[in-house]
Design a protein around this nucleic acid. Structure first.
Length: 456
RNA sequence: GGAGGAGUGGCCGAGUGGUCGAAGGCGCUUGACUCGAAAUCAAGUGUGCUCGUUUGAGCACCGGGGGUUCGAAUCCCUCCUCCUCCGCCA
């Protein structure tokens, strides 16, 4: 616990951050993404399974670090042991005698040597932990192997894309024609990748939030939780956004704007030991999400698909390891239910090994039909992280007879609001520019149709 | 933002330089008693790591980091967090 890594001391940028924000350790424990024992004992297996992701990891260096660590721990502990033995002796000696002075001088040297070994041990452990932070989670056996999104496996398809008897407009045109969407002024007021929603479209946004929250709490057994929208460094570490994806995050002083409610909600139980019988714990949380979308320049620049700020209803589960894959299936089903009730055609794909997110062991994407692009686009991402986040965030459960064990965490969008609006605008548009409101939302929207232009 | 107080094991809470991984209590486990339960009695009950085939042995951990010392839960510095009071504010 104490020898927990000052990983940030290795990176100038992070060192500056550490000073600036006044923290020493973003995490309060030594846990890493990969279990150290498992890594040591299944080294080749980890190497092979990591290779499935097509990421560059220096396993040669890792092997050396593991061996060095083991040796230094052994030596440091031996030195400490010797020191302790002599300390027992000096306690019994008269403090004014010459023997005392002599032994004290010896001990001074011994102490220095032990400290030195201990420092070396710490340094190696720090380096090792630092490296481990950048190793992605192991992929689950059921994940299809592949390089990129073209290798993802379509699991099932729901609904049929609507046949239009007119050329469908994209969501920006539908929204602007209705006078309810203003991308231009968002550019003026803030910049690219922001939007103004107005009137009934703004209403649609929070109606969708309410609709989803009600569905998941009343019918799927989730507890609603409204989290902070700013989180600290340790939380970003806990769920795996940091240290690798710092450039994707917006920061305010020492805080981070949440990229997803997953971060505050998963970290809700950080450093806790939960009773086994409480599992699974299921939360549903609304939050705005802030992402820099670094590296996506030129992609989805038009419209609401890829924004720096969007809203989302997120499902988060804390599961017993034995049942986490059943929980993943039901989580996906819960998210799918939203699309079904909204009458939006979609498909479920299992991400291949090369397309899988850093922290996920397995991930299903829900992709909704987007008429203007004539393809399915991601609207939800449902992942099982197994113990990866639980190790980082130190979230465990205790069985009545056993020791504390890391539990499994899962989460998924249920759903992303912005993209749901995109899907509704496109799939429910009419030739005359009006918009039909999905039946499930008519009561909340107080109307079954939007006719433009409205507002100014 | 200003002033003061506090951070100890699953929980509460003692402990101000070595005899403290840490009293005591609660909780939990096991055993005794009981037809059974409660109550009572007895024993046990932290985490991580290293070595060892096993029994086991060792090291570290009292909010984080650093320092003083032969030796730190205990002394010093620093950071974080929480609480109380004042100020400001949706």
């Amino acid at each position: 616990m104490r020898e927990w890594w000052n990983w940030q001391t290795r990176k100038t940028k992070d060192l500056v951050a550490a000073r600036l924000w006044g923290f020493e350790s973003p995490l309060s424990h030594t846990h890493t993404m990969l279990d150290l024992h498992y890594l040591t004992e299944h080294f080749d297996e980890v190497r092979q399974r990591t290779a499935l992701r097509h990421v560059e990891i220096d396993f040669e260096e890792l092997a050396v670090l593991l061996e060095t660590r083991r040796n230094l721990i052994f030596q440091a502990e031996a030195a400490r042991f010797e020191q302790r033995q002599d300390q027992e002796r000096i306690k019994a000696i008269d403090k004014s005698s010459p023997e005392f002075l002599e032994l004290r001088n010896q001990l001074r040297e011994l102490s220095t040597r032990a400290k030195l070994l201990d420092d070396q041990r710490k340094e190696v452990v720090d380096t090792l932990q630092q490296r481990l932070l950048y190793i992605p989670n192991l992929v689950h056996q059921s994940v299809p192997q592949g390089r990129d999104s073209s290798d993802n496996a379509v699991i099932r398809v729901w609904g049929a894309p609507r046949q239009f008897d007119f050329p469908p407009r994209d969501h920006v045109d539908v929204g602007e024609l209705l006078g309810l969407l203003d991308m231009d002024r968002a550019g003026k007021v803030t910049g690219a990748r922001f939007a103004f929603l107005k009137g009934a479209l703004a209403r649609l946004s929070h109606v969708l939030v309410d609709f989803m929250l009600e569905l998941h709490t009343k019918q799927h057994g989730y507890l609603e939780i409204l989290p902070p929208f700013l989180v600290n460094e340790a939380s970003m570490m806990g769920t795996g956004q940091l240290p690798k994806f710092r450039e994707d995050s917006f920061q305010v002083d020492s805080y981070f704007l949440v990229p997803t409610a997953e971060v505050p909600v998963t970290n809700y139980h950080r450093d806790e030991i939960l009773d086994e019988e409480r599992l699974p714990i299921k939360y549903v949380a609304y939050s705005p999400c802030f992402r820099k979308e670094a590296g996506s320049y030129g992609i989805d620049t038009r419209g609401l698909i890829r924004q720096h700020q969007f809203e989302k209803v997120e499902l988060v589960k804390f599961s017993h390891p034995d049942t986490s894959y059943q929980e993943l299936e039901s989580l996906v089903a819960d998210a799918e239910r939203v699309l079904q009730l909204l009458g939006l055609p979609y498909r479920v794909v299992s991400l291949c090994s090369g397309d899988l997110g850093f922290s996920a062991a397995k991930c299903y994407d829900l992709e909704v039909w987007i008429p203007s692009q004539n393809c399915y686009r991601e609207i939800s991402s449902c992942s099982n992280f197994e113990a990866f986040q639980a190790r980082r965030a130190n979230i465990r459960y205790r069985s009545p007879d056993g020791k504390p064990q890391h539990l499994h965490t899962l989460n998924g969008s249920g759903l992303a609001i912005g993209r749901t609006i995109v899907a509704i605008l496109e799939n429910y548009q009419n030739a005359d520019g009006s918009l039909t409101i999905p039946t499930a939302l008519v009561d909340r929207m107080k109307t079954d149709k939007l006719v433009g232009p409205q507002g100014a």
